[in-house]
């Protein structure tokens, strides 16, 4: 029999194997989850992520088929390949889940997010904010003498970039929808 190398009374041993979590490469995946639009279905999906310790970077949900009562939940999550596989399998186990699509695996998906961004300021800063908004193709949807609300659509990175530029110009508030995504082609 091979040797036991644990010392008597050693406190480094618990009822569980306290191994280091392996530092493996994590990547971001966009998942589309088609569910029955019934009470509590979103709680089931979110509860799965929190209960099993998975990350949610972004989450959007809305009914996409009113007749069939189907909703589409778009989740952007991060993890190692094995964790992502496990997330998909666990999602697939939820009874009202019909389909789990990994849009990232299917090919770089079309991803869009909408944000409303309030910027307050006067003078040069105000003019600069308006000029940058044009470059980013953001629309002004509300305006007072001291503020604008811009509506901007794009990838999350584009919205991050626009919000960063607005910060020194009087960024007051940001509301974002989270990512909606579809795979490319048929």
């Amino acid at each position: 029999m091979a040797a036991l190398k644990i010392k008597k009374g050693s406190s480094s041993h618990s009822a569980y194997d306290l191994r280091d979590s392996h530092s493996q490469i994590e990547s971001s995946h966009t998942l589309a989850v088609i569910v029955d639009n019934e009470a509590g279905v979103l709680a089931r999906v979110i509860g799965l992520f929190s209960g099993r310790g998975y990350n949610i970077d972004s989450l959007t949900v809305a009914e996409v088929d009113h007749k069939g009562h189907k909703s589409r939940i778009t989740v952007v999550t991060r993890g190692t390949e094995s964790v992502i596989d496990q997330i998909k399998a666990q999602l697939g186990r939820i009874v009202p889940v019909h389909e789990v699509k990994d849009l990232t695996v299917e090919g770089s998906p079309v991803e869009r997010e909408l944000a409303l961004i309030k910027v307050s300021g006067t003078g040069d800063k105000r003019i600069e904010a308006l000029r940058l908004a044009e470059i980013f193709r953001a629309n002004v949807v509300d305006s007072t003498l001291e503020s604008f609300v811009f509506e901007i659509t794009g990838t999350p990175e584009k919205i991050d970039a626009f919000a960063d530029l607005m910060r020194p110009l009087g960024l007051a508030e940001v509301a974002r929808t989270g990512v909606a995504a579809l795979s490319r082609g048929v």
């Binding site: 029999m1 091979a2 040797a3 036991l4 644990i6 041993h13 618990s14 009822a15 569980y16 194997d17 306290l18 191994r19």
Partner: peptide, 12 residues
């Protein structure tokens, strides 16, 4: 098998 030990390190 104390936790964190492989199968071939059993305690009899």
């Amino acid at each position: 098998i104390p936790s964190g030990k492989p199968h071939n390190e059993m305690l009899l």
